[in-house]
Simulated scan of single mutants.
Amino acid sequence: MITLTGLQKVYHGESGTVIALEEVSLAIKQGEIYGIIGKSGAGKSTLIRCINLLERPTAGKVVVAGQDMTALSEAELREARKSIGMIFQHFNLLSSRTVLENVAFPLEIAGVKRAEWEKKVLPLLELVGLSDKKDVYPAQLSGGQKQRVGIARALASQPKVLLCDEATSALDPQTTESILTLLRDINKKLGLTIVLITHEMHVIKAICDQVAVIEGGQLVETGKVFDVFTKPKSATAREFIKAVVNNKLPEALAEVLSETPVAGGNLVVRLSFFGAATNEPVIAGLIRRFAIDVNIISGNIDHLQDTPYGTLLIELSGAQDDIQNALNYLQAIDLETEVIGYVARHAYAAG
């Protein structure tokens, strides 16, 4: 549906040259929800605005639904943009127009008569849950309701692609969750391809199928959300993931943990479980199979969309050969196993 090839965007100003995007290439399939995450100034807003050519790339190619957007004339580009809807962080509603009239605005601009656009707009208001607000003005709406109007307006032209520019950043957590649920529902009902940029990893975690991590105008990592979450390759991705996955060591353990083996000490290991493995009796299996003691220090289970995943921090004590055999067993059953360090025997329990 969307292919970006060698995308570059350079700004020239009085303070010098700024490279906002450098050699960005990615492919987004029809019907995907594709997340692009990065810190402020990373280039993500520039990237999403290059898709509909609100920002024209300095170099590279943008292909949407088989059309090379960078090769179109201005008239052709205006027509092509009708198939690309966009919603914004600050809603951009017209204060003097009712909800109904705001949603109808792009259709009016296109010359559609009221009798015709009402037939299109009223079902959209029902889709976003605002049928009872059609005659209300934006000042009378909550932030979440305003964003629902923005979504309905973006859908008025029956686009094939919906671009979301920090669409939930101005909303509280509960409202954010409802808007993300709505976007997922729209994706399923309409088969719409959604490209969503954000600086919040929990947004990516909630609804995205694929994710691209951008840093300094370059893509540093791309892949399925589950893969990036569970096996991040870049420091930037790991930093974002820390915000939603609590892998922080208990303070009492951190104080006594050593990076090198401690004579007569115990091994501290973090296990990561994915999918069906979260229901397996792993600890019982270790104790049955090997002559070791296992102390559970901490653990948690969460869900990445419909897939459960969890972490477990454990302390292993016993003969070195038995502990190594236990680690080999954990790796053989496809558990992510990370040796955190070593503690003197009973030191953590005493702490």
Rank of each mutant, 00 (worst) to 15 (best):
K9E: 08
Y11E: 06
A20W: 06
L26P: 04
L26H: 13
I28L: 06
E32D: 07
L54P: 08
A59P: 04
G60C: 00
G66V: 04
L77A: 10
R78N: 14
K82S: 07
R97F: 14
L100Y: 14
N102F: 01
V103C: 08
A104T: 05
A104D: 02
E108S: 10
E118I: 15
S131G: 09
K134I: 09
P138R: 04
S142L: 05
S142P: 05
A154E: 07
L163N: 05
T181W: 14
L182D: 09
L183E: 03
D185H: 14
D185G: 05
I186G: 10
T193L: 13
I197K: 06
T198I: 03
H199N: 12
E200G: 02
A206P: 09
I214H: 02
G217H: 01
Q218L: 00
K224P: 00
F229S: 08
T230K: 01
K233N: 02
A237I: 05
I241Y: 10
K242Y: 11
P250G: 05
V256F: 05
T260I: 09
A263M: 10
F274L: 15
A277V: 14
P281H: 07
I283T: 11
F290M: 12
I296H: 13
H303K: 15
T307Q: 08
E315R: 06
S317N: 08
G318C: 07
Q320E: 10
D321R: 13
Q324H: 12
Q331M: 13
V339G: 04
A350N: 09
